[in-house]
Amino acid sequence: MNEPLIEKTSGWRGTRELWIQAAYGALLETGIDAVKVMPLAERMGLSRTSFYGHFSDRKDLLDALIQLWQSKNTGNLIRRTEAYAETITEAILNVFDLWLLPDLFDSRLEFAVRNWAHSDARLAAMLEEADIIRVEALQSMFERFGYDTVHASVRANTVYQTQIGYISMKKDGPSDPLAPRLERMRTYAEIFAGQPVTDAEAARFFARHPVNET
């Protein structure tokens, strides 16, 4: 039997954020079928009743997970496409920060949500909408640097579908060695942009993602 994840005091019902984090952990570890009130209550060392002090029902909790995914992954992707850059290659490297920093883009959550969407038609529609919004943000980024609509669209889809493919295949994840990933990203940026990354741009990118040699 799992030990409770938190220490409880008499009468304490936990917090909404702790319930969401417990649900998040269960979703990543086992899938959406594990996100149920009683197993989560046992996992947290709380009573089932305490759940209803923060959520109306299980759907309310699932909606909170979806909102977390939308805010973190879609919201941060849009913000990175709009980040300051002097060239398209620098802009692409800004986007690549997402694939290296889980605090910006949670690849494990993305994978779990995509699996969940196979059994939830409502979420599948939301995922399709998110894909469209993300690609449009990437396309706008390319257009900002002078690419025509057709080329911007194709390049945006290529950037996005390449990374989603990696996520679906569980490749180039946080557990993979960082140095070769970084070197590939410079080449990817050049391919996606159709022009080389300057040494100064590469240096700034690598400085944001130092390799721990120990």
Results as ranks from 00 to 15, higher is better:
residue 65 L to W: 04
residue 142 F to I: 02
residue 73 N to Y: 01
residue 15 T to Y: 08
residue 207 A to D: 10
residue 66 I to R: 11
residue 130 A to M: 02
residue 138 L to E: 05
residue 94 N to E: 07
residue 136 E to H: 09
residue 131 D to N: 14
residue 125 A to T: 10
residue 19 W to E: 09
residue 3 E to P: 01
residue 188 Y to P: 02
residue 103 D to A: 06
residue 207 A to K: 09
residue 178 L to T: 05
residue 131 D to G: 10
residue 108 R to K: 14
residue 6 I to M: 10
residue 31 G to V: 04
residue 17 E to V: 08
residue 102 P to H: 05
residue 149 T to M: 10
residue 24 Y to W: 05
residue 208 R to Q: 13
residue 105 F to T: 00
residue 100 L to Q: 03
residue 134 R to W: 06
residue 60 D to A: 09
residue 3 E to G: 07
residue 100 L to N: 12
residue 24 Y to A: 03
residue 36 K to M: 11
residue 78 I to Y: 02
residue 183 E to W: 03
residue 199 D to E: 14
residue 50 S to I: 04
residue 89 T to G: 07
residue 57 D to P: 05
residue 136 E to Y: 02
residue 162 T to H: 12
residue 29 E to F: 11
residue 202 A to L: 15
residue 8 K to V: 13
residue 99 W to E: 12
residue 118 H to I: 10
residue 104 L to C: 02
residue 208 R to K: 13
residue 104 L to E: 10
residue 138 L to N: 02
residue 101 L to T: 15
residue 34 A to L: 09
residue 130 A to F: 01
residue 213 E to R: 03
residue 101 L to S: 12
residue 92 I to F: 11
residue 150 V to F: 11
residue 185 M to H: 06
residue 130 A to D: 00
residue 69 W to H: 15
residue 213 E to C: 00
residue 45 G to H: 08
residue 128 E to Q: 13
residue 20 I to Q: 01
residue 66 I to E: 12
residue 182 L to C: 07
residue 103 D to W: 00
residue 28 L to H: 04
residue 159 V to N: 00
residue 169 M to G: 08
residue 10 S to V: 14
residue 94 N to H: 12
residue 102 P to F: 03
residue 39 P to D: 10
residue 211 V to N: 15
residue 71 S to T: 14
residue 72 K to F: 09
residue 122 R to W: 14
residue 62 L to Y: 08
residue 25 G to N: 09
residue 6 I to R: 07
residue 180 P to N: 11
residue 84 Y to L: 13
residue 29 E to L: 13
residue 202 A to C: 13
residue 86 E to D: 14
residue 207 A to T: 12
residue 18 L to P: 00
residue 211 V to Y: 10
residue 183 E to K: 08
residue 9 T to D: 10
residue 56 S to W: 15
residue 85 A to H: 02
residue 39 P to K: 03
residue 193 A to E: 05
residue 87 T to K: 08
residue 161 Q to P: 00
residue 208 R to D: 11
residue 133 I to E: 12
residue 129 E to Q: 15
residue 168 S to E: 12
residue 41 A to L: 00
residue 157 N to W: 01
residue 163 Q to H: 15
residue 139 Q to H: 04
residue 189 A to I: 09
residue 123 L to N: 02
residue 162 T to S: 05
residue 55 F to G: 07
residue 86 E to I: 02
residue 22 A to M: 08
residue 68 L to P: 04
residue 77 L to T: 11
residue 209 H to C: 06
residue 192 F to I: 11
residue 97 D to A: 08
residue 34 A to M: 09
residue 113 V to Q: 07
residue 194 G to Y: 06
residue 73 N to P: 01
residue 165 G to M: 11
residue 88 I to S: 04
residue 178 L to K: 09
residue 185 M to R: 04
residue 197 V to Q: 04
residue 124 A to D: 12
residue 90 E to T: 14
residue 106 D to P: 07
residue 153 S to I: 00
residue 179 A to V: 12
residue 73 N to W: 00
residue 156 A to R: 00
residue 207 A to N: 07
residue 67 Q to E: 12
residue 180 P to L: 08
residue 191 I to N: 06
residue 163 Q to V: 09
residue 192 F to Q: 03
residue 1 M to G: 15
residue 187 T to A: 13
residue 155 R to F: 01
residue 176 D to A: 15
residue 182 L to P: 05
residue 6 I to V: 12
residue 128 E to D: 15
residue 112 A to I: 03
residue 183 E to G: 03
residue 65 L to R: 01
residue 158 T to N: 01
residue 51 F to C: 04
residue 22 A to S: 14
residue 96 F to G: 00
residue 144 R to M: 01
residue 198 T to K: 06
residue 76 N to K: 03
residue 58 R to G: 02
residue 144 R to V: 00
residue 19 W to Y: 10
